[in-house]
């Protein structure tokens, strides 16, 4: 349905019919949309180290890692939804907050395993509801996840009363949040492990293969005998599980949890994914490049903070970057088609 991306009414073009390969075309736009993130992230880090006072300090780097970890975990998970050509999952905001509150709040009263169990059930519920609405009912993913965001946040605020939960000072959550390996917090290592696992799933398993194939061509994937509804549900479940882990990490970082703590995660995660070169048109993308996108967005935000630039302008800058990255991708596809 929403595949009406072409606005100008362009008459259909027939296939090229020369024998053998069509001529390979190198395009700067194509390169930028797919591989640009390597160069830009490297440049940004170099600029930050050389020109920005206070960036290259150990404390600052650790801080960047702390902030990047939960966003990064959400982003690598949500990469699955984006690659499967379902735009994004806006409800990660609600999912992360819910997981945080459950982890801290429920473990205070009912114990740690119960909290994790409940969080897992909630995450699966999110994934399945979003996935069924999009995969089976063919509803638009943006609208579906917009509504589940409000349902989820509504339930969370209602049940939690909007209050802040504090973990015990000596509990396992606190311990996890404080743990570091040299300058690198444990949460950043969690991000790396999850990235590695999801990279493996996306590139080396049948399920990941079907996600990419479905994103590239829904009709062809269905006609190969694939249960495409399951593929979509799977993509949303992966995203939900990642959002749950991100919620744990976020709660552990501050040893507190509140329903508003993940505001803006939808935005930051989408920025990282798109800047990482995953196409919003589906089919193309990589978890590893999303990780680079996370580093890019986190470093950029950190630089802006260090330069004393306010939250509003940060949002404008990153919003502009998203639109720019999507435009480059869209234009590159157009060049590629000609």
């Amino acid at each position: 349905m929403a595949d009406q991306t072409t606005t100008a009414a362009v008459p259909p073009r027939a296939a090229s019919d020369e024998p053998g390969l069509a001529k390979g075309r190198f395009s700067l736009l194509v390169w930028m949309s797919e591989r640009g993130v390597f160069l830009f992230t490297a440049l940004l880090v170099v600029v930050a180290v050389v020109f920005v006072n206070g960036f290259a300090s150990l404390a600052n780097i650790t801080d960047v890692f702390y902030r990047a970890a939960p966003i990064g975990i959400v982003a690598v998970g949500m990469t699955f939804v984006v690659i499967s050509a379902n735009y994004l999952d806006l409800s990660v905001v609600a999912q992360v907050a819910t997981a945080s509150v459950i982890l801290v709040g429920v473990s205070n009263t009912a114990g740690f395993p119960a909290a994790i169990g409940l969080a897992l059930v909630v995450a699966l519920l999110y994934g399945v509801v979003n996935g069924l609405a999009v995969g089976v009912f063919k509803a638009n993913a943006v609208i579906v996840t917009l509504s589940t965001t409000f349902i989820g946040l509504g339930i969370l605020r209602w049940l939690s009363g909007g209050s802040i939960f504090f973990g015990p000072e000596d509990g396992p959550i606190r311990a996890f949040g404080q743990a570091k390996l040299g300058p690198i917090p444990l949460s950043a290592l969690v991000l790396l492990v999850i990235t590695a696992v999801l990279w493996f799933v996306l590139t080396r398993t049948n399920f990941g293969f079907l996600i990419r194939s479905f994103g590239s061509n829904k009709a062809a994937t269905r006609l190969a005998g694939v249960n495409t509804a399951l593929v979509v549900v799977g993509a949303f479940v992966i995203t939900s599980l990642a959002a749950m882990l991100a919620g744990f990490v976020l709660a552990a970082f501050s040893n507190t949890a509140v329903s508003t703590m993940s505001d803006g995660y939808d935005f930051s995660a989408l920025a990282a994914i798109i800047i990482g070169g995953t196409s919003v048109f589906g089919g193309k993308g990589s978890v590893l490049r999303t990780l680079l996108g996370v580093i890019f967005v986190s470093v950029l935000t950190n630089i802006l903070v260090l330069l004393g630039i306010g939250f509003g302008l940060q949002q404008v800058a990153i919003g502009a970057l998203i639109v720019l990255a999507v435009s480059v991708d869209a234009l590159a596809r157009r060049v590629g088609k000609k």
Binding site: A2, T5, T6, T7, A8, Y87, L88, N140, V142, F267, L270, V280, F281, G310, F311, G312, L313, Q314, Q315, V316, A317, I318, G319, A320, I322, V323, V326, S327, A330, L331, R333, R334
Partner: peptide, 26 residues
Amino acid sequence: VGINSFIATLGMLFALRGLAFVISDE
């Protein structure tokens, strides 16, 4: 540019929210 309107206006949603913060000083 040929961007799907879902994504184009989503980017605008975020960017304009930032702009509102900038103009209002939050």
